[in-house]
Design a protein around this nucleic acid. Sequence first.
DNA 1: TATCTAGTAGTAATCGTTACTATTATTATA
DNA 2: TATAATAATAGTAACGATTACTACTAGATA
Lengths: 131, 131
Amino acid sequence: MSKRYSAQKMMIEDALMRLDHPTASEIYEDIKKTYPNISLGTVYRNLGLMAESGEILRITFGNQPDRFDINTHDHIHVICKKCGEVFDAEGKRLKELIVEIDESIEESTGVHIENRTMYFQGICSNCREQS
Amino acid sequence: MSKRYSAQKMMIEDALMRLDHPTASEIYEDIKKTYPNISLGTVYRNLGLMAESGEILRITFGNQPDRFDINTHDHIHVICKKCGEVFDAEGKRLKELIVEIDESIEESTGVHIENRTMYFQGICSNCREQS
DNA sequence: TATCTAGTAGTAATCGTTACTATTATTATA
DNA sequence: TATAATAATAGTAACGATTACTACTAGATA
């Protein structure tokens, strides 16, 4: 029942540190460069286990493929609609606002909020300069 | 190029009014009861067109199937984790809070926010009573 | 050193959704 | 009213992300 060391899992952790909010197949393609035998299923299984244990974060952007994040710190994701880059947002004020939203929703619906899913889309400053 | 009247589209609109935040296949199954020849593809195509034209709302809940909403009024969705019911939340305060979140994110990331996706999960008062 | 079993590679299967194609039916027009 | 033009449909194939399955591999354990 004890966990075993696995070279594949280590490669996945390494890829997660090097890549920026990667998808499972981005990780797969990356590892394949140095270890062509890696299996996509192995990548998915390890990511799933890591996400479940809280070691990493699974980010779901609408109907696009899930992305994964080694930064498990509480933060919000923002995607540029043009270049696709993912930005992180955090801060005390943001956290306060979210608590207030929870309260407002609990009051009007009677639902006791336990989880929230949110991400934002817009145009990053880089892309705005190019137009 | 002009749009044509279609009995199928009317049935879909009717189902959207009767059902509560239905998925495409819930609509499909519903219509099939009275019109067994309806095609799932037709349901998807019409829902897609209606969502694109702004006639209805497409709601994406993580990796679950998309749901559709005849209520195009600006509001937030809350799902009960236990019974799956979808609740609507809205209000002036909520809208203000979201504007503030936009501002906070724009300030820290430099991304000019254009769209936001958010939904909340928790336990509704009905389900809380039963435990 | 033999055994046990977590973890893997590779592939099949699933699910929601879109794409494709031959057919049907609604509108405009002769 | 008949007919031509073409939206829209039914039915099915294809797709992309993900999970499930199975035989095999390789660390750990006794």
